[in-house]
């Protein structure tokens, strides 16, 4: 299952084929349904702690993943479920990690915010705001050290963009021409603090200007726009021109984490986004309008995804808790 989703990636050119659109639709829907299910399981007490859902932001990671090639790495924050699914990690293993079971990617020891897959070059899942940014540059450093043309995709939020270490990293990445794409997922809020209340400039893509890093603001609700920007950025990085900043303007529909009173924005604001800018509806409309897919085709995809998610949820509940002996393993290699 995982393998076929990987090979179904969009082709390398800019133009969106029917297959590309269907692929995007499918991937985004997988994330959306996965997150909805995670929300339900959380409500049932099967998932604990912090759980940050990616609903609304799906186009960002799906669009960018379509520009990756083998050996490219990705690293992100605690809002990481979508990134893991998009890079081909198994929904069962991700969901079982959320429920803290032995079948999870980290054997239940990492949880929602700390998951990794060496195999898929997914380097976490980091709970400390901003910390994954220099780590991403370090992955890019390794590519340069080894002389390959791989790129490290480093995702972080609008709030994280105010962390000092981000600028330390920008400086080194530009100084050393590291092949890293800084993807600022600007969902307009850092917990309850809107961008306006936290940033001296609304234009986060210009934050690299002082370091000579090109930046671009992208409609992060439009997967094709994301993909186009991603192709440009990856080309820049792969040809040794150094880092690139993509500010993805996006929106999260749900609370910051599961326990969010959401007093900082109006219901209408969220509703408007959902109705007018939803990234999945957008692709769905394109597919239907251009007669690239029938309602029946799309229903079949919905059904297939529902099955995958149900299977993941079932697995996440059936998988046993980690053996008590696991307490003491993996402290040292």
């Amino acid at each position: 299952m995982v393998a076929t989703r990987r090979s179904a990636k969009a082709n390398a050119s800019n133009a969106a084929s029917k297959d590309d659109l269907l692929h995007f639709y499918r991937e985004m829907l997988l994330i959306r349904r996965f997150e909805e299910k995670a929300g339900q399981l959380y409500g049932m007490g099967l998932i604990g702690g912090f759980c940050h859902l990616y609903i609304g932001q799906e186009a960002v990671v799906v669009g960018l993943e379509s520009t990756t090639k083998d050996g490219d790495q990705r690293v992100t924050t605690y809002r990481d479920h979508g990134h893991m699914l998009a890079c081909g990690m198994d929904p069962k293993g991700v969901m079982a990690e959320l429920t803290g079971r032995s079948g999870g990617y980290s054997k239940g020891k990492g949880g929602s915010m700390h998951m990794f897959s060496k195999e898929k070059e997914f380097y976490g899942g980091h709970g400390i705001v901003g910390a994954n940014v220099p780590i991403g540059a370090g992955l890019a450093f390794a590519n340069q050290y080894r002389g390959n043309d791989n790129v490290a995709f480093t995702y972080f939020g609008d709030g994280a963009a105010n962390q000092g270490q981000v600028y330390e990293t920008f400086n080194m990445a530009s100084l050393w021409k590291l092949p890293v794409i800084f993807v600022i997922e600007n969902n307009q809020y850092a917990m309850g603090t809107s961008l306006k209340r936290a940033s001296s400039t609304p234009a986060l893509y210009t934050r690299g200007a002082a370091f000579g890093i090109p930046g671009e603001a992208v409609d992060g609700m439009d997967v094709m726009a994301v993909r186009a920007a991603g192709l440009k950025a990856t080309e820049h990085c792969r040809t040794g021109k150094g880092p690139y900043i993509l500010e993805m303007n996006t929106y999260r529909y749900r609370g910051h984490s599961m326990s969010d009173p959401a007093k900082y924005r109006t219901r209408e604001e969220v509703q408007k986004m959902r109705e007018e800018r939803d990234p999945i509806d957008h692709v769905r409309d394109l597919l239907v309008q251009d007669k690239l897919a029938t309602e029946d085709d799309l229903k079949a995809i919905d059904k297939e995804i529902k099955a995958i998610i149900n299977e993941a949820a079932q697995y996440a509940q059936d998988s046993p808790e980690p053996d008590a002996a696991e307490l003491w393993t993996d402290v040292y290699a």
Binding site: V75, P134, I135, A137, L139, F141, G164, E168, T169, M172
Partner: peptide, 25 residues
């Protein structure tokens, strides 16, 4: 390539080195 002067940026280069170590260096 292997002996690298960094800017004065402890937080940043420590994190960068961790990333390089994750990648196997």
């Amino acid at each position: 390539r292997r002996v690298i002067d960094t800017p004065i940026t402890e937080h940043g280069f420590a994190g960068l080195a961790v990333g390089a170590a994750f990648a196997g260096l």
